Amino acid sequence: MTESQYWQVILTVIQTVILFVGLAATFFTLHRHHKDSKALATINLIIHQRSNDKLNKAIDLMSKLANQKTDFSDLSEYFKNKDSEECNALKTVLNFREFVAVGINNDSIDEHIYKDAYYSTVLRDWKYLKNTIYAIRDSSTGFPTAFQEFEKLVLRWQRHPLKKKI
Rank of each mutant, 00 (worst) to 15 (best):
E3Y: 08
S4N: 08
S4D: 13
Q5T: 02
Q5I: 13
Q5V: 04
Q5W: 02
Q5S: 13
Y6F: 12
W7A: 00
Q8H: 04
Q8R: 01
V9K: 02
T12C: 04
V13H: 02
Q15Y: 00
Q15H: 03
Q15V: 05
I18Q: 03
L19H: 03
L19F: 01
V21M: 02
L23C: 08
L23T: 09
F28A: 07
T29W: 08
L30M: 00
L30K: 11
R32M: 04
R32Y: 02
D36V: 06
D36G: 00
S37F: 12
A39G: 01
T42L: 04
T42G: 03
I43F: 01
N44I: 11
I47L: 03
I47H: 07
N52L: 05
N52C: 10
D53K: 13
L55T: 03
I59R: 01
M62P: 13
K64P: 15
L65D: 09
Q68R: 06
K69D: 08
T70P: 15
T70R: 11
F72Q: 12
L75Y: 15
L75A: 15
L75N: 05
F79D: 13
N81T: 15
N81F: 15
K82V: 14
K82C: 04
D83L: 12
S84I: 15
E86P: 09
E86S: 09
E86Y: 12
C87N: 14
A89I: 14
K91Q: 13
K91E: 10
T92V: 09
T92F: 05
T92K: 06
V93A: 10
N95Q: 14
E98L: 09
V100Y: 00
A101P: 14
G103C: 15
I104Q: 07
N105Q: 06
N105I: 04
D107L: 07
I109M: 03
D110G: 08
E111Y: 01
Y114K: 02
Y118L: 13
S120E: 14
V122M: 13
L123W: 09
R124L: 09
W126Q: 08
Y128A: 07
Y128S: 03
K130D: 15
N131H: 10
T132A: 11
Y134I: 10
R137I: 14
D138S: 09
T141M: 00
G142D: 09
F143L: 14
P144L: 07
P144N: 08
T145C: 01
F147H: 07
E149M: 06
E149C: 01
K152E: 08
L153A: 05
L153Y: 10
V154W: 10
V154D: 07
L155M: 14
W157N: 04
R159D: 14
P161F: 12
L162N: 01
L162G: 11
L162A: 04
K165V: 15
I166T: 04
